[in-house]
């Protein structure tokens, strides 16, 4: 009797659960679909009939974005900057975070590193331009890499710290007994286990870099060095923006992010199972 009762409740719960999840999924999916549909429209149909299907498919928008904005080059620039940033960011923050959580706990440094999470990016625009000018890195993609790395350090260390703290201390001790050096412990044991944390950081940092407009705007000037989001932003008009064109640009820029996300999600799971086997 009790068993039956539970199963009835369980079934109801399952139905409600899936209903809720599906409604949320539809709501979450909708903006992407809206951007996709709008990317085939002109302004009259976006404003006149914002939620309807396009009367005629304006594939024109995509062609124009691709040719007008030199998207191929901008895309490569963005990819280059984001990936280099990710590599540097993950290396240096995981190393720093490892020391601060497991080897040398230092309250001052922890607070120091968490300051950055609070700084609005607008506050950095003019000082950063001045600094890179002094360094001779005006209009240089590496300036962008350094700036993206710096602005993402705080929250990356924050997340990494959470993951490193969750790894049992015994692992270090066992490894020390086995005769591993500190750096060996880090690279062979801790770093692999922290993969889920790294994947989270990588996803979020990639997103931040990929979508950044302001730093790219002030640090880069040459057209052939522009990042994708800069090129897409140039599609806005002075008075009237052709939103169909803009949406086509967004679709082009969203796709790599989604691919990146899917890839890293796989890594999360791979990392987790690896951790479970070893642990």
């Amino acid at each position: 009797m009790k068993f039956l009762h539970k199963s009835w409740k369980y079934q109801l719960f399952t139905i409600v659960k899936y209903l809720f999840l599906t409604i949320m999924a539809v709501i979450s999916l909708y903006p992407f679909i809206w951007v996709l549909i709008s990317s085939f429209k002109d302004n009259n149909s976006i404003f006149g009939d914002p939620f309807g299907l396009p009367k005629e498919l304006l594939i024109e928008n995509y062609r124009e974005v691709w040719e007008g904005a030199d998207v191929g080059r901008n895309f490569l620039n963005s990819m280059f900057v984001c990936l280099v940033t990710l590599v540097i960011l993950i290396m240096i923050t995981s190393m720093g975070s490892y020391i601060l959580t497991r080897v040398w706990k230092n309250g001052f440094l922890s607070i120091y590193f968490s300051l950055g999470i609070m700084i609005p990016i607008h506050a950095l625009l003019i000082p950063s331009v001045l600094i890179f000018k002094r360094m001779g890195l005006t209009d240089n993609l590496f300036a962008l890499v350094l700036m993206y790395t710096a602005t993402n350090i705080s929250f990356s260390m924050f997340i990494m710290n959470g993951f490193f703290e969750g790894i049992p201390r015994e692992m270090d001790e066992a490894a020390t007994i086995d005769g591993c050096s500190r750096s060996q412990i880090f690279f062979r044991i801790i770093f692999p286990i922290a993969k889920p944390g790294i994947a989270t950081v990588a996803t979020l940092a990639f997103l931040n870099c990929w979508n950044d407009l302001l730093l790219g705007l002030v640090l880069i000037s040459s057209p052939h060095k522009k990042t994708l989001s800069l090129a897409i932003s140039a599609l806005k008009g002075s008075y009237a923006t052709r939103y169909g064109l803009l949406c086509a640009g967004f679709v082009i820029s969203i796709i790599p992010v989604v691919i990146m996300y899917l890839l890293f999600q796989k890594q999360v799971i791979a990392g987790m199972t690896a951790g479970a086997v070893k642990g």
Partner: peptide
């Protein structure tokens, strides 16, 4: 160098400052 108007104003202001 071409930018949309809103971006352009920010760009010129930072360029003036530097």
């Amino acid at each position: 160098q071409t930018y949309s108007t809103e971006d352009y104003k920010t760009k010129i202001k930072t360029q003036t400052a530097s």
